[in-house]
Design a protein around this nucleic acid. Sequence first.
RNA 1: UGGGGCGUCGUCUAAGGGCAGGACACCUGGUUUUGGUCCAGGCAGUUGGGGUUCGAAUCCCUGCGCCCCAGCCA
Length: 559
Amino acid sequence: MNVKKHRHFIQRIIDEDNATGKFDNRVHTRFPPEPNGHLHIGHAKAICLDFGIAHEYDGKCNLRFDDTNPIAEEEEFVDAIKEDVHWLGFEWDNLCFASDYFLQMYDLAVQLIKQGDAFICDLTADEIRKTRGTLTEHGKESSYRERTIEENLDLFKRMRSGEFPNGSRTLRAKIDMAHPNLNMRDPVIYRILHATHHNTGDNWCVYPMYDWAHGLEDSIEGVTHSLCSIEFEDHRLLYDWYLDKLGVYHPQQIEFARLNLSYTIMSKRKLKQLVDGGHVSDWDDPRMPTLSGMRRRGFTPQSIRDFMDEVGIAKRENVMEIEKLEAILRDDLNKRAQRRMAVLNPLKVIINNYPENESEELEAINNPEDDSAGSRKVPFGRELYIESDDFMEDPPKKFFRMAPGREVRLRYAYFITCNKVIKDDQGNIIELHCTYDPETKGGSAPDGRKVKATIHWVFAKDALDTEVRLYDRLFSVPDPAAVDNFLDVFNPNSLTVISHCKIEPSLLEAEIGEQIQFERLGYFCKDTDSTTETPVFNRTVPLRNTRAKLEKQQHGQKN
RNA sequence: UGGGGCGUCGUCUAAGGGCAGGACACCUGGUUUUGGUCCAGGCAGUUGGGGUUCGAAUCCCUGCGCCCCAGCCA
């Protein structure tokens, strides 16, 4: 029992800090999204870490919007992010906005100027870039670097009051243009942006840069461990420099590797491109790796949290296989989803020896993994629909399902045998004539004879007509981010819409988003696009299918 | 080429001087009224070379490889 759980490097750091009393044994984290798009599965890793650490150490975690760039940010995204964090199962201690600290940040910038550690620079963005130097060459100091403190103070005040146009001046830290870390070469602290901010409106026309803002946000909120992704490692030096120069409370930044998932992308910029370009319906398109998309697709928050436990926390670059996510999803869904029967591609079956105009109700188990889910009645009669894939007129060796003269079981119903195949003019199979054995009611034969297959079905008279949407991976290659143009590898078959599917009538009561297993097919949920006339179901994930896998392998060998 | 990081089964991740373990994937077989679930078994790894040590994935030295940084984005 009592298995010693592995502690990842961040937990070890915190354990050490608590042992030495570095932060008075407080643990306070924050999840700091920029409201410029929807959260995705990569953010879920950070959310589970930030909130998980706080919970584990009986500390606090803030939800903080890092809203320092009014051009990219929207209120709509603030709401979406809050909804997603809640849905994932977390409750923040404080709801914060970087923009609430704009005045404090401004005052601290004034302090920095007064200390002689910052100056107003009149160089254009282009000139700053050209004088920054390169990876191997030093930069050149700005000609405005030695302005007097008084002049800097005056200009900064006038920048704030709106006297100057966008891009005309910046406030820059005075550090070292020869520094090997490019972030230390007199980085910009404030830029002029005459833009309306979602939170502060037109109160400001100067906005702080990330490096300046982020450390101050952490400091103001009393954050102890500021967890961020690995690309900010280079920025830690500057994070520390600002906090030290200012002499304010100094949290510790710790970096970890972000999550990558095969066959998809995590770049918010690219996801936005998919939305804006109409390649997907919206941020919550069920194919998207966004939390809103995954929710609509039918993922449970539990499955995402379980996945993050498997992902682990480390610094090395990683790509999780999408198959692992699906395995964990199925594991969760298998336990919680009720079973129903649905036929995606209907083939009519007529049971000739079943009395016309009669029907009966048969008992079906709702979830074999959960006795408490009970059972239901499913209607049965003379005319049924079965999956057209479940019949082959001339079956190959390993095909166990229905074929002429072969007896199979209709799940929870009877054994039936096909004795006539009806075709249309083009030779397509349109109907099967069968006989049933009344002695096999419920699905077992009193004489003990066996069948090789059990197939699902729906009673034609009571079947509901529905649309089903099948989803496949968004991209056709494992690493779409590595391709020149990721749109070139967008999977054209990522969405397949099937109409006139037949589902059992009990599905009328399904709620939007409720997870259901369509027996032998996969896990599905009712989509928000459903209307009273036409319910729409999303396939969350197919069942594992060794049959299809084998067929695929055999097919691959032939070619 | 400057700086910052990272190298353990195919993929993720443990082992922090003492039997290289787990999960997913893959392969066998069993159970089964879902070709699902479940059960049993199998395959498979320490970036190269030196050194320290009774003992090295782990410590040291030295190669090699990969990732990030030259936004007035975050």
